[in-house]
Amino acid sequence: MGRLIRVITSRLVQGFVVALAVASLTFVVVNVTPGDLALQIAVARHDLESVTPAMVEQIRKEEGLEGPVMRRYFRWLARTLRFDLGCSLVNGRPVGEELIHRFSYTARLAGAGLLVSFLLAVPLGIASGIRPGRGVDRFSELLSSVLTALPSFVIGVFFVLVFAIKLHWLPAAGFTGIRHMVLPALTLGIGLAALSTRIVATAVADVRSRFYYRFARMKGLGGMHLILRHGIKNAAIPVLTLLGIQFAHLLDGAVVIETLFAWPGMGRFLLEGILARDIPVVQGAGLLIGFTYVAVNMAVDVLCVALSPSRNPGEAPP
């Protein structure tokens, strides 16, 4: 139990550090790059013609954008830590609401992508790991090297060309129905599967070479019981640990794939914010992505503790 609490506390601290880092980084950017944030906010709220210098000063006061640098910095931090994210500079809408909306789309895409990658990587990885160096293993290894050499947008463009343009089976872009999700989810899932197949294969091969696995066979256990109770469970720990790291890969993929398929998720929201230099949007999206990252890793840690309560998360069984 103590280990569980330790794991959770350290992740909570990490979450706080992430918030601090994102807030500080955006503060630096706001203050280093040219442009008056108060003026930008004023233009976003009203329109360019009706903005007067008095309004700009009013906003500067309201938003706490005046005074010495250090005071402004702490005010900025306090606001961020209260999750007061402000409004978009482009359309004046509150960033928080928009984020929740966008997040639900990314969560859907990520869920479907993970499902695809799971369905591909687990069977193929187990089949490869059970007979290392044989046909299936060599095939999956080659397939992984080819797929990891493909950036996700190239995979996505290929799918669009084949399934949307040539065969007219599926729509190329949009976000209204489940049919719109097929191609983005496939693109994301295949990119993830390229990595995780090898991770699963290595983990399974490793467990198979362990003496407890051979001994389980000598005890007379076999078939599915052996694979499920002694194989999968032990192989799951390194796979889960690496899943946390893979999440970074998933986020990278999400930005690119959402852009390609015009999917209104977080990644594209962040990219739009960056391209439009919409600081509140960038900060909000950065925070949410950082927190999600910490939360996912915390879940992975907890799962690892549950599977193997005697060991530290991340440490492979001996």
Partner: peptide, 11 residues
């Protein structure tokens, strides 16, 4: 087996 630590499933 000889070494119980290696023969028992750690999880």
């Amino acid at each position: 087996p000889q070494e119980p630590e290696r023969a028992l499933d750690p999880t």
